[in-house]
Amino acid sequence: MNNILNTSLIFLLLISCKPNAKNLDSRLNEFIKINKINHGKAIFFIGLDECPVCYSEFQNLSKVFENSDVTTVVISRSKVKSVNFIEEIDFFIIDSTYLAWELKLFQSLPVLYKLNEGHYDSIPINHIAKLKKNLNHEEN
């Protein structure tokens, strides 16, 4: 009985390891390739659905992005919200199919991806000041 249990556990472990084979860089690169984003740019993901606070907190992103090379990915099924949100932002992508979520690049909190020594770092962003701070750090 114990043998069966052990074998099953090892089998489950092996299966569960498979989906993690794709690391963050490869998942992000897949997203970059599909959406034709310049590799190496910082990417900011923000979801607007079911998050009224996110919409308000991160309005006027264009001011934050001044002198920063960032692509914004707006994850939302609502065209009205997305289109109004990205006003005056130079580089953006609207992800209405939740591809970012499927690739496990986004859960619920906004997140900034920055290239660091050839690999992408993910930084959860809970308010606009943190975004500013991280982008300034990038410039320095």
């Binding site: 079911e50 009224p52 609502s78 009205v80 919200k81 109004n84």
Partner: peptide, 11 residues
């Protein structure tokens, strides 16, 4: 709805 109104009503 007009083009300045999202279909999600929260408040």
């Amino acid at each position: 709805l007009d083009d300045k109104t999202d279909y999600n009503f929260y408040y």
